[in-house]
């Protein structure tokens, strides 16, 4: 009996010690960039025509990359438009662009109005020798706004855009909507 009591008190002592030493430990499960699938970009579809009007002509491989990245940029701009989720598209923003977005960030919201980009005609105006700067006019871009009641409105508008190649992507750095009254097409 004494042995049993001694044993039980010993076990209880060890258990109490362990209980007091225990702390909740969270091990980060954030996967590295190369494993993070960009679902937003993957699920996005648009049509982009590219016309090169710059003095320096980019090669075909560079144009393929540009087209893919520009589509991804719009995938994230649309996601941002609906949700104010500035983090999801961070890979496609320059630091200045990201800081500007962060200034108007107040947490992610439930989407109310969403937007789709249907078409872009991308006129490359300037292309830097080193392939790191691209300024362009996105002419006759068609953007469709979708309201919660499924009502849609499509607009045609012209934009000037500055893209910079940073890290492994083209990133948006600055923009200007050229027409004050976008043209409603539907």
């Amino acid at each position: 009996m004494i042995l049993r009591s001694l044993f039980i008190s010993f076990v209880v002592l060890v258990a109490i010690y362990l209980f007091l030493q225990g702390r909740t430990i969270n091990r980060s499960s954030e996967k590295p960039v190369f494993l993070r699938a960009d679902k937003i970009a993957e699920n996005h579809q648009t049509k982009i025509d590219i016309t090169v009007e710059s003095q320096v002509i980019p090669d075909s491989l560079e144009l393929v990359t540009l087209e893919k990245d520009y589509a991804n940029i719009w995938a994230h701009l649309n996601h941002l438009y609906a949700t104010n989720d500035i983090i999801a598209g961070k890979e496609y923003y320059t630091e200045s662009w990201f800081k500007q977005l962060a200034a108007s960030y107040d947490g992610v919201i439930e989407p109310v109005i969403s937007r789709k980009d249907e078409y872009h005609h991308f006129y490359i105006k300037n292309w830097s020798n080193d392939g790191l700067v691209c300024s362009a006019i996105d002419s006759n871009a068609v953007l469709t706004y979708i309201y919660p009641n499924e009502e849609k409105e499509s607009y045609k508008l012209h934009m000037a855009i500055v893209l910079l190649y940073q890290g492994d992507h083209w990133r948006i750095d600055a923009i200007k909507v050229i027409d004050n009254n976008p043209h409603l097409i539907e």
């Binding site: 710059s54 003095q55 320096v56 200045s96 662009w97 500007q100 200034a103 105006k125 300037n126 830097s128 020798n129 700067v133 300024s135 000037a160 855009i161 500055v162 750095d173 600055a174 923009i175 200007k176």
Partner: peptide, 28 residues
């Protein structure tokens, strides 16, 4: 050397670099 010149405001709006100038200027 190629020079691409443009002006951007602090909210990342492209602005005209100078009165009457193009949005993007480029020269060699």
């Amino acid at each position: 050397q190629q020079r691409i010149f443009l002006a951007v405001d602090e909210w990342r709006n492209i602005v005209d670099a100078a009165e009457g100038a193009e949005l993007f200027e480029e020269e060699i």
